[in-house]
């Protein structure tokens, strides 16, 4: 019997070793400085794909009350719908910035992200960032936009694609213009795309695309416009009385 006494000892040793192997939660990075506001440096309002990393990383900056960048402030990112960040939390670098790669969730649509930090007294302050994931339909709409519409509706002019915006006597609306969009139903948009500006008593500088684009392409274009609208598009819809 005495010969077996080593068993409990060995078990204790194994348990102790097993416990030591338990992953110790990495201590959250300790903030060395505090700011009072987070601003977006770059990477907001990108067009991404469901489940995929955004083309550009998201860069935020923490500023103090005077608007100077703060080094070593702790920033944590969060978002709904299965968004992942890499890293999720860290300290700002020597220029007061923190860069994170964003992986959107598995469904298309609008993703609201938050970057949060705290000031000296521990009071939190946050920044909201919007990112967009294009589904199949919005992707088709994006392609239609790039091929036909953006040449006039996009004010951004590049050497590869010179914008015609400045050449037009009546300026076209940007597709991100949310206020204008809220006033237009899907039927209005279909009419103006299909029959040109005069369909809604607008300028004839907008030509009709009804005989050029297919019905599905027009629908896709509208879905895309609705997605990129800023502020987010509010469908008029049916309003039901509260129960």
């Amino acid at each position: 019997m005495k010969r077996l006494l080593w068993i409990p000892g060995a078990m204790a040793l194994v348990i102790a070793a097993g416990c030591a192997r338990q992953p110790v939660a990495a201590p959250a990075a300790q903030a060395t400085a505090f700011g009072s506001a987070i601003v977006e440096s770059s990477g907001g309002k990108q067009l991404g794909a469901p489940g995929a990393a955004l083309p550009q990383p998201l860069v935020v900056q923490v500023n103090d009350a005077q608007g100077n960048a703060v080094t070593g402030a702790f920033v944590i990112f969060s978002g709904s719908g299965g968004v992942r960040f890499e890293p999720t939390e860290s300290l700002t670098d020597s220029s007061g910035q923190l860069t994170t790669n964003v992986m959107l969730g598995g469904t298309s649509g609008r993703y609201e992200l938050r970057a949060a930090s705290t000031d000296k007294s521990g009071k939190p302050f946050t920044l909201s960032i919007t990112e967009l994931a294009l589904g199949y339909q919005e992707q088709v709409g994006y392609a239609v936009d790039q091929n036909y519409c953006a040449r006039c509706h996009d004010q951004e002019s590049s050497a590869e694609r010179v914008s015609n915006y400045d050449n037009l006597a009546v300026k076209p609306h940007a597709f991100t213009d949310g206020q204008t969009q809220d006033a237009l139903s899907d039927a209005d948009l279909t009419a103006i795309i299909g029959h040109g500006g005069p369909a809604l008593n607008h300028s004839a500088l907008m030509p009709p695309y009804g005989a050029t684009l297919s019905r599905a392409e027009v629908q896709a274009l509208i879905a895309y416009i609705r997605l990129i609208s800023d502020p987010p598009w509010r469908a008029a819809g049916v309003v039901y009385a509260k129960r």
Partner: peptide
């Protein structure tokens, strides 16, 4: 199939480039 690769499924039948499948 993870969502980021979903366009691969279109490619099982569609062998020509399409506007909706940039990746």
């Amino acid at each position: 199939l993870p969502a980021r690769y979903i366009e691969s499924s279109c490619g099982q039948c569609h062998h020509a480039p399409m506007a909706g499948t940039p990746r």
